[in-house]
């Protein structure tokens, strides 16, 4: 039991930040991101004995995080992008600095992407290896590269157009 707790604590420390980024990129809302991150780690704890070493632990955790984000639909209606964006800006209003504003703008731009694009790009931004992203998303690496190329281009365009406004 103690070993399992230690392993879980290690997993939490190694992965919580990236899982949080994924959830924040997906929901565009800090509170929801914290809830989803907690839910992800609760599921990780409950399923720790089912991990079969077929993939890296981080990939396995990401898979649970992605599916938890997808089931977010079950409990909350998908909010309109404008409402999402207002939320992000509100979240950052308290600590407004030029850099924070740019990050708020970045999250605002991510919120304008499709759901799977948000998931993929947050992992790309966190420098998760492509093989791992492909495994988490359940698509081939070749296909992932095509998608990433398109999403990078799309995000850069959206970000720059938001910056001009």
């Amino acid at each position: 039991m103690n070993n399992q707790r230690q392993l879980f604590q290690q997993l939490f420390e190694d992965n919580s930040k990236k899982v949080y980024h994924l959830c924040y990129g997906y929901t565009g809302d800090r509170d929801s991101a914290n809830d989803l991150m907690q839910e992800t780690f609760i599921k990780v704890w409950q399923n720790l004995d089912k991990f079969r070493n077929q993939s890296q632990l981080s990939t396995w955790i990401y898979r649970i995080a992605v599916n938890t984000c997808l089931s977010y639909l079950r409990t909350a209606k998908r909010r309109a992008t404008d409402e999402l964006n207002d939320n992000i800006i509100e979240n950052y209003a308290e600590e407004a600095s030029e850099k924070q504003e740019q990050i708020a703008l970045l999250y605002k731009s991510i919120a304008q992407l499709e759901e799977n694009e948000r998931i993929i790009i947050t992992m790309v931004l966190d420098e998760v290896p492509y093989t791992e992203i492909a495994e988490v998303a359940g698509i081939s690496e070749g296909n992932l590269r095509v998608k990433i190329h398109r999403i990078k281009h799309k995000l850069t365009e959206i970000y720059n157009s938001n910056e001009r406004v």
């Binding site: 919580s16 930040k17 899982v19 949080y20 980024h21 924040y24 800090r30 991101a33 914290n34 991150m37 907690q38 600590e95 850099k99 924070q100 740019q102 990050i103 970045l106 790309v124 931004l125 966190d126 420098e127 990078k152 281009h153 995000l155 850069t156 970000y159």
Partner: peptide, 17 residues
């Protein structure tokens, strides 16, 4: 995109859990 990535990596938001 590289600048956007740098911006992302310098972000503060961290889980408060």
């Amino acid at each position: 995109f590289d600048e956007i990535q740098q911006l992302w990596q310098g972000q503060k938001p961290e889980p408060n859990v």
